[in-house]
Design a protein around this nucleic acid. Structure first.
Lengths: 204, 204
DNA sequence: GGGTGTGAAACCTTTCACAGCT
DNA sequence: AGCTGTGAAAGGTTTCACACCC
């Protein structure tokens, strides 16, 4: 199952909590956030019976269930490799410094950056990576390095004990057993949208 | 079909061009970049017969075909809404200022930022959006605004004539006919990875 | 009545395996 | 001989529709 959707539901529920909504049906939830009601029910039912027939879902209870299911009831330590523009922007991303995530190390290879404080984080040299990962028990890594060094950077993270990596480098990384990999290539996404943009313009 | 894969193939071909490879089979391509050879053949064959049976694919020719298919033979003007950390980082992202994309406007609502130059781009007020989009014929928009104003920002872009939007705000946007939407929620991706990280650690 | 939980149906994607071309 | 292009098979996901419970 696409675990991502549980995250999206949780984001929606957080919104409802702010608005003071205490109960909601799958249909209302779907309409309110442009989702599919049957998919919501299937997804949630796959992990237990969280709803009340004839009534709907209790917002607070469901949010807590999802938080537990997603493992957000603990703090996840994150290391970031690459203190360029994207790396520093992500380090300061709201939602990455609060709740379940905490950045415990920002690393770079450039002597110009090492030792400096960028966006509130001290930039460390790569040879401290292993030590930091062991000491902080970090499990998550973010890669914002140039494409040429993406593979070796991923391997460094894996060797240091990181078990899940989010890669922003535009490169095809060979994943290892034991260290999940999720890549986001902004260029690839934009190229898809460029295609849409052109088709749309022709239609209208 | 997942148009994204054509982009990935193109990225791989660019790499091969740099390495001076002139011909490649679907099998080599798959092994080299950790893809599926039958999927490569299916994807490519869906748009024409680009390969030579018994030989493979001509790297340069195929790259050019893909560039045309993806609409990368023209320049796409892009406007960015939100001159925060992520917005400015993306404005300077390599690959967004070269080849087929060109940023023609960086917009923000904050009076502190308007008029200043951030990352080489003048920050403009939102009321200039429509004019800039019309004058530059921009079709692509990037949203790096806070979640609370994501919907209205998307609507502003759509009203201005933007036909494809890449949204980084952690909000569920209601798409309109005529303006495609692709959302990337870093929090959602990290939450999925957090789950993986925990499961992996238990296994090991 | 109203809304969840769920088998079954419809749909879409990926992999397989091989005919057919070079 | 070798590799593409492609129908057929397998696998997965989404939607439908309704039994069942509150």
């Amino acid at each position: 199952m696409t675990l991502n959707r549980l995250s999206v539901y949780l984001r929606c529920l957080r919104r409802l909590q702010v608005e003071g909504v205490s109960r909601i049906s799958s249909n209302e939830l779907a309409q309110r956030f442009h989702l599919s009601s049957s998919q919501i029910r299937k997804d949630l039912a796959a992990f237990g019976e969280f709803g009340i027939r004839g009534v709907g879902y209790e917002v607070n209870a469901l949010a807590n269930h999802l938080r537990t299911l997603l493992g957000l009831d603990r703090t996840h330590r994150v290391v970031v490799l690459g203190a360029g523009n994207l790396g520093t922007a992500l380090s300061q991303f709201p939602g990455l410094q609060q709740e379940a995530f905490r950045i415990v190390g920002l690393f770079d290879i450039s002597p110009d950056k090492i030792g400096k404080t960028i966006g509130g984080y001290l930039v460390r040299p790569l040879d401290q990576l292993h030590q930091v990962v062991v000491e902080t028990e970090a499990r998550l890594g973010i890669l914002t390095v140039p494409a040429q060094v993406a593979q070796e950077s991923y391997d460094l993270l894996a060797d240091a004990g990181i078990t899940a990596v989010l890669n922003f480098a535009p490169a095809q990384i060979k994943p290892r057993r034991g260290t999940s990999l999720r890549s986001v290539d902004i260029r690839v996404i934009l190229e898809e949208l460029a295609h849409h943009a052109v088709s749309q313009s022709l239609e209208g």
